[in-house]
């Protein structure tokens, strides 16, 4: 299978850089898979699990707050949080969800409230995904 260059960068370090065959990215408007030769494309990320496939190897990373960019050279994902699923701290998740729920009750208008509700949903979905991933890994 053809491979392409993939880079996952967080503010503090270059998390991943190398040739891969397929990457599934949680985009803001839905998950999308990137293969070699994907059309140029930019989208924000939704909190979720990013899967890197290379041959029979798969690597799952949790990403949050960032962007994905596909161009001729390959895929670049910028994420403020990027950690391997196995290394995630469960407590951090619980606090993040609690904070998001707090935002729902504090939202001033309807639009902000909907946004906050969506954030909670996304986080919960991601937590479920990660939880399942964590169980499978053990």
């Amino acid at each position: 299978m053809a491979s392409f260059a993939f880079e996952l960068v967080s503010p503090t370090r270059l998390v991943f850089s190398g040739e891969v065959e397929q990457v599934d990215v949680p985009g803001a408007e839905g998950d999308f898979g990137v293969l070699a030769g994907h059309a140029p494309f930019i989208t924000p990320l939704r909190p979720g699990v990013l899967t890197v496939r290379n041959g029979s190897e798969t690597k799952r990373l949790f990403v949050k707050d960032g962007f994905a960019e596909v161009n001729q050279k390959g895929l670049t994902v910028l994420a403020e949080t990027a950690v391997a699923v196995e290394e995630i701290e469960r407590d951090a998740f619980a606090t993040a969800i609690k904070e998001a729920e707090q935002a729902v009750t504090e939202a001033k208008d309807e639009a902000a409230r909907w946004q906050a509700v969506a954030a909670v949903e996304q986080l919960k979905a991601a937590a479920a995904q990660v939880g399942a991933g964590g169980a499978a890994a053990h």
Partner: peptide, 16 residues
């Protein structure tokens, strides 16, 4: 690095 390619945006430029 884009080589003058036209990007697709999701949702759209403004929001991104």
């Amino acid at each position: 690095g884009s080589g003058g390619a036209v990007y697709e945006y999701e949702p759209d430029e403004e929001e991104i």
